[in-house]
């Protein structure tokens, strides 16, 4: 019976739950789903991590390649994040070129990397104007069940922590490169943590929404915190928020940081 009710009146179904301060999956309104993290799961990648937040799964694989730096920034390497929302992850997505949502997510991840300064791209430069590393960070969504951006940032940071780059020697006279076997771990300067809330009926805030809740919500807000400082707030339209609601979101995002960092550290420790 509940299933039919849910199909016919999805909004009312959710509203009935929220009236009792509980969500369809049994969580409180501001509770997060359990997270799981596995690092170094893909041995063909230079760094990798698999993240599960509730039912949402994202895998991140990082490949390093050599390239020539840009002429206007000769002393910097590159980081190229790419979020892929494949049709495998949800029936919402169709085969074909990347959807708008996937491209927006890729740009969001890129902005977070830039704003948080988690990696100094100068470290990726080997010989100015000649040789630099490109880190291709491919994030593949395997199961789409809400808060994908949170999962992407978590997977990316965990995977970056597992990256080690081989030492490279550059011969100026012959302009040849030799890649050595010794590997140096990548320096990570900060750890941004992302937290998403959904806004339902213009007033109720739901932390870490599932796909169903996101679809019915009147808006979402994603807050990224790095080293106790705000590094990105992203609210793509939707219903307006009051200042106190906004503060609540930021506070919860800040409070979540320590648990997420603990998770990453535990996963890294247990794999090395």
């Amino acid at each position: 019976m509940a299933l039919q009710y849910k199909t016919i009146h999805p909004v009312k179904y959710l509203r009935d739950f929220l009236a009792h301060n509980v969500r369809p999956d049994g969580r409180g309104l501001l509770k997060f789903r359990p997270m799981a993290l596995n690092v170094r799961s893909i041995s063909s990648a230079d760094g990798s991590a698999l993240v599960k937040i509730g039912n949402t799964s994202v895998i991140c694989g990082i490949k390093a390649e050599l390239a020539t730096p840009k002429a206007e920034e000769p002393d910097r390497g590159f980081i190229v994040p790419n979020v892929e929302l494949s049709p495998l992850s949800s029936s919402k997505f169709r085969p074909g070129p990347p959807s708008e949502e996937a491209q927006v997510a890729s740009q969001f991840v890129f902005d977070v990397i830039l704003n948080s300064g988690c990696i100094d791209t100068k470290c990726l430069c080997i010989v100015p104007d000649k040789l630099a590393w490109v880190l291709y960070c491919d994030l593949v969504c395997l199961n789409y069940d809400g808060s994908v951006l949170d999962a992407c940032i978590l997977a990316l940071m965990a995977a970056l922590n597992t990256v080690s780059l081989p030492e490279v020697e550059y011969d100026h006279e012959k302009s040849t490169t030799t890649v050595k076997t010794e590997r140096v771990p990548l320096k990570i300067l900060s750890m941004p943590v992302s937290t998403t809330h959904a806004i339902f009926d213009d007033e109720v805030l739901l932390a870490d929404p599932t796909c169903e809740e996101e679809d019915l919500a009147s808006g979402t807000i994603t807050v990224v915190v790095s080293e106790g400082k705000l590094c990105s707030v992203w609210k793509p339209g939707g219903s307006p928020l009051t200042e106190s609601q906004m503060d609540g979101c930021v506070d919860r995002a800040k409070n979540r940081v320590s648990s997420v960092l603990d998770l990453i550290n535990t996963a890294l420790k247990s794999s090395s």
Partner: peptide, 8 residues
């Protein structure tokens, strides 16, 4: 649809 992750 057959797809290979770029890092595979």
């Amino acid at each position: 649809q057959y797809s290979m992750a770029t890092f595979s």
